[in-house]
Simulated assay, not measured.
Amino acid sequence: MSAASRRLPAALLCLAALATVAASCDGGGPGGASGGPGGTPSQSASSIFDKPSVTVAVKKGQPGFNTRSGEEYEYAGFETDLLNALADDVGFKKYTHDIPSLRREDILLDQGADLVIATYTITDARDEKIDFTAPYMKTYQGILVQKGDSEIKKLKDVDGKRVCSASGSTSDPGSVEGEQAQKSIRETLGQNVKPGFRKDYKTCVKELADGNFDAVWTDRLVLEGFAHQKPYEDHVKVVEDIKIDKQQYYGIGIREKHGADCRRLNRSLKKFLDTRWRMTFQQHFPDLDEGDFEQRYKPSDPEFENYRATSCGAK
């Protein structure tokens, strides 16, 4: 063997060692700590979709979105169908359980759930604690009153009335920090409104029907769900001429540092909006299936893309 031949294995060993060091510095490739494009750190330490089942927090008792019924007491509604479509497309098994509005951030932070799909409005305050996907629904806020109410016709008529909403919702001043932000929510309906907060909207609607409140305030689409489904439709109605100019966009909540999982959900959400949103909405909100309902409730392509650009921790 020549001297040159004897030096060749040693050179190959050196090259192998250098490759190992480079791989270690790079995080070991796509699955490592720096698996993002261009060498940028990846947000996802591990995928929630690799778990045996993904825990999803939902809100029951919201007609149109999520209710439980039937012999097996199963969930049914727009958000249930959305979850099923995402699970099929992304490829994960799911386990669902019910939570109140007040617990949505906490259950993600405490790792009691992997996802929250529960009429969850995307806000800056919430986005500081958890991440959101792009939206799958939009709606203005509105007012629900008793069926026979003839006093509340315009927003100014709500001032001085007893108004119920859910704790932890965007209608609750306690859902935001800062005196000015809290004051802005309190004065949305008028300075003299007498607010009351309950654990969920179902309780608010029941107390409205019983006369404990004069109105319920939240997202109009949530209120329409109650107003058009039994047993509530005989007792309450949405005030047609009140549209509170604060549009809400619903997204899926997910813990931070799961950017790759969040982006996978975004891709599936876009597919759902393009192919199944209209049919699903018509099935669960049949009384709203007229006119420009898609313009009113479905995020447009530009809206979706604007939110997608700042979603999943990109903000």
Score class of each variant (00 low, 15 high):
S2A: 10
S2L: 10
S5W: 03
P9R: 09
A11G: 08
L18V: 13
A19K: 04
V21Y: 02
C25L: 15
G27M: 07
P30Y: 09
S34E: 01
G38R: 03
P41Q: 00
F49Q: 00
D50T: 13
K51N: 07
P52W: 09
P52V: 00
S53F: 14
S53A: 15
S69T: 12
Y75M: 05
F78C: 06
N84Y: 10
A85V: 12
A85S: 15
A87Q: 03
D88G: 12
D89W: 07
H97V: 02
P100N: 03
R104M: 14
E105Q: 14
L109C: 09
D114N: 14
Y120P: 00
A134M: 02
G142K: 05
I143Q: 05
L144S: 08
E151A: 15
K154C: 10
K161F: 01
A166P: 07
S169P: 00
G174D: 05
Q180P: 01
S184P: 06
R186H: 06
G190D: 04
R198I: 02
D200T: 13
V205E: 02
D214L: 15
A215Q: 11
T218L: 07
G225P: 04
Y232R: 00
E233D: 15
E240M: 09
I242C: 10
K246F: 07
Q248E: 10
I252V: 12
G259A: 13
L269S: 01
L269I: 06
F272H: 03
W277N: 08
Q282S: 12
E294L: 14
E303P: 00
Y307G: 00
T310P: 09
S311H: 00
C312E: 08
